[in-house]
């Protein structure tokens, strides 16, 4: 292992290059496939393996910026990006983010805000994950019922129920998003949704990709692939801003960021390509499993904060890394299997 150790001049530590590339690759695959930045995986991983938290966040944000450029380009090519919605999301989320961080500052005066935030984070991950899992099995049942009536091959074309209800709110002015196939929706509803996602990002101290992607699907009614691409636009902008601002404060380890980017760029291309082969519900199923497991990692971290036993912190990282690794393996396996099937079909024709 020591052969691959490199010295990081800014952070002043030795680190294993293979480990950096592997972390980058896993997070790149997840980023390209789910439309998330993956900061919730990289930051604790780097911290556990020896980085100071501030360096871990700054280096991670720089990596997110680099890996997302290629992923956005690829999703654009596949027609998965609604730029209009993406830009509205960036502008509105900033306001929500400020409100969320203001609430944190206010709560800090009252006591240990970290515990409260982690409880909220945990229940958000589990709540969202369970809802998505329930939605998956519910829709599969409906599809098999439709198949038995009309013959196989029918796909679920309906928008999620929640977004259908929200679309009925018709407070003017109305706005359309042709790239997402959304006609005449109240702009107030859109602004309110992004204000909420921004607020949650600011409150929980996360990039927000994992909140925006499901919000785009379940609240606005975007097709999953478009939600993934559009979410990446927000991630790209927050990554670019985070990279610059953390580097100005001297909290980016450039050598580590560059090495991690080698794995992350390759991973992001693989993850983005996999979106072509996996149906929307498949993406949502994997996403729900991933965030439920991430919720367990936060729960273990919470136990560590309460007991101050270092073992729990290590295992929080282990669960998180294990989740990232297993999801990457599943995504790559699906990509390879589906690409092979497509090639076989093409050769038969």
């Amino acid at each position: 292992m020591n052969v691959f150790n490199i010295y990081l001049p800014v952070a002043g530590i030795e680190f294993n290059a293979i480990l950096l590339i592997s972390i980058g690759f896993c997070v790149g695959v997840l980023g390209g496939f789910f439309g998330v930045g993956g900061g919730w995986i990289v930051t604790p991983a780097l911290n556990i393996f020896g980085f100071h938290m501030a360096f871990a966040i700054g280096t991670d944000l720089s990596n997110i910026f680099g890996q997302t450029i290629g992923a956005v380009k690829k999703h654009q090519k596949m027609g998965n990006i609604d730029w209009k919605l993406g830009l509205i999301s960036i502008a509105t989320s900033i306001v929500g983010l400020e409100l969320g961080s203001d609430l944190i500052i206010a709560l800090e005066k009252a006591g240990d805000v970290g515990l409260v935030v982690r409880w909220c984070y945990m229940f958000l991950l589990w709540g969202l994950g369970s809802y998505m899992l329930h939605d998956y099995f519910d829709s599969r049942q409906k599809v098999s019922a439709t198949d038995s009536r009309n013959g196989a091959g029918e796909e679920a074309k309906q928008r999620p129920k929640l977004s259908e209800r929200l679309h009925r709110i018709s407070i003017p002015p109305m706005i359309s998003f042709p790239a997402s196939g959304i006609e005449g929706v109240s702009i107030w509803m859109i602004l309110l949704i992004f204000l909420f996602t921004g607020f949650m990002s600011g409150f929980l101290g996360v990039g927000g990709g994992f909140i925006i992607m499901p919000a785009l699907v379940y609240l606005i009614g975007l097709p999953t692939a478009v939600a993934v691409g559009t979410s990446l636009v927000t991630v790209l902008f927050s990554g670019a801003y985070g990279c610059l601002t953390y580097a100005l404060k001297g909290r980016v380890e450039i050598v580590a960021a560059v090495i991690m980017l080698i794995g992350a760029s390759i991973g992001a291309q693989v993850g983005s390509t996999a979106v072509k082969y996996v149906k929307g519900y498949g993406i949502r199923l994997l996403f729900s499993v991933m965030i439920i497991l991430a919720g367990f990692s936060v729960a273990i971290e919470q136990v560590y904060k309460i007991t101050q036993n270092q073992v729990f912190q290590t295992y929080a990282g282990v669960v998180l890394m294990g989740t990232a690794m297993s999801m990457s393996v599943i995504i790559i396996a699906t990509l390879v299997a589906d690409a092979r099937k497509e090639r076989n079909r093409a050769s038969i024709k």
Partner: peptide, 28 residues
């Protein structure tokens, strides 16, 4: 990060194309 991200993405894209994993506009 911007230049390296773009370059590496471009190279990976070429490799994926060579492996038959080219992407184009998809149906959602």
């Amino acid at each position: 990060m911007a230049v390296l991200g773009t370059t590496l993405a471009f190279i990976t894209d070429l490799v994926l194309k060579a492996l038959g994993l080219e992407v184009s506009k998809i149906s959602h």
